[in-house]
């Protein structure tokens, strides 16, 4: 069985995304998002490793009427394992976390991460109290994951096992002030965005 291609996974999950807010962790997940295009509702991080899930929690609490999708890698998620406990304790029904797990630190020379050594991120999330967790390995499972991201009423954590193959970098904007203002404007309108 061949491993999933991360770009194709992200493209499928975001297909027909509508008003989905998408917060994405640094490195390959940010490039995967950029390869799908550039949307004002995207917030790619270029640093702050370990923090992306908590940015997603803040957005989910501030925008309870919207769905917030966090996409990150296994390395970033491992650095923020405690945030899984914090998020599960808050249990925002409009937040979804997807870890694209290639079992590697892809940016720094393909060193193996803990998930290559037996750590199961979905089991960690389940142990923290996430009501919905799963691990996806096959393309046929992506349609139901995509449906749950868009329609489920409940906190979700999914691991998607992907190939460690390095893909061409597609860079999202990296001016933090620009990214902040355009997301605030999209969510709050021009006047409140300037507060």
């Amino acid at each position: 069985m061949s491993l999933l291609n991360r770009r194709e996974v992200v493209r499928e999950l975001l297909r027909g995304r509508g008003e989905l807010i998408c917060v994405v962790g640094l490195g390959a997940p940010a490039y995967d998002l950029a390869a799908c295009g550039d949307d004002p509702l995207d917030f790619p991080l270029w640093g702050a490793m370990g923090g992306v899930a908590m940015v997603g929690l803040g957005l989910a609490l501030a925008q309870p009427g919207r769905t917030v999708l966090v996409i990150t890698g296994d390395g970033e998620m491992l650095m923020g394992l405690g945030s899984l406990a914090t998020i599960a304790a808050q249990r925002p029904p409009n937040l979804r976390l997807v870890a694209l797990d290639n079992e590697r630190y892809g940016e720094t020379g393909q060193q193996r991460t803990h998930t290559a050594m037996g750590v199961d991120l979905a089991a960690v999330a389940q142990g923290c109290g996430f009501p919905h967790t799963r691990t996806v390995r096959q393309a046929a499972e992506l349609a139901s994951l995509r449906a749950d991201i868009h329609t489920l009423d409940g906190l979700l954590f999914a691991v998607v096992k992907v190939s460690p193959e390095e893909l061409p970098r597609v860079l999202p904007p990296r001016d933090g002030h620009y990214l902040t203002q355009r997301l605030r404007q999209a969510l709050l309108g021009a006047e409140r965005a300037l507060e």
Binding site: F43, A48, V55, L57, G58, R184, R192
Partner: peptide, 14 residues
């Protein structure tokens, strides 16, 4: 975690 939480809250208007 609280620094990142505050960032997300600000993005969403809280």
């Amino acid at each position: 975690e609280g620094v990142a939480l505050a960032a997300g809250a600000f993005l969403g208007g809280r």
